[in-house]
Amino acid sequence: MAALDEKPELGEAPEKGNEPKTLTIEAEICFKCGVCCVIRDHSCHAQHAIHFNPKHTYVYDCLGSGDPAGNSNIWLCVSCHKCEELCPYEVSPVHIIESLKAQSFEEGRAHPLIVGEIKQIVSTGYAFPLTGSSSRQREKLGLEALTQRSEEDLRRISEKTGLVAKLQRYEVEET
């Protein structure tokens, strides 16, 4: 095991703003005490998924997987930070899981709902489709009708950051 204050090798530096929020070394110092998951009233909600137990916790499932960025369970994390706050060893599993999600998205392996939501946001400005039911409810309540929001600015931002190119990779795979 590496010394606790040793910085891990990260390879080529990622672009500013897209760095992993944490370091893989943190996963290696986790000694599987389970505190982040097994305090039923206070800890990780994903631990309540029926296939996890005190000896195979949600966090260990994410950190200990053979292909962590390909483990579909990473998408169950809600980023509530409970694991980070409860960990007695400063592992911060939430940041590791978030980095795994970002890696998965980068590699074209993100959950389809995630890809769909990102496309929805950058093309309409909303995380949800504008439905007829929503329009009728708003009209009945005397609220202004919703229209697409700032889609031209969102397109320019997404092109500049490279998001459009990443999403195009998903479209190629879909076809």
């Binding site: 897209n18 980023s79 970002a102 998205f105 939501e117 946001i121 909303y126 969102l154 950051t161």
Partner: peptide, 20 residues
Amino acid sequence: TCCPEPVGFHINDRLTATAI
């Protein structure tokens, strides 16, 4: 626009989400 949504967008493409 959308904030953008934390779990679906913000942590998966941070630079774009931060800019939005």
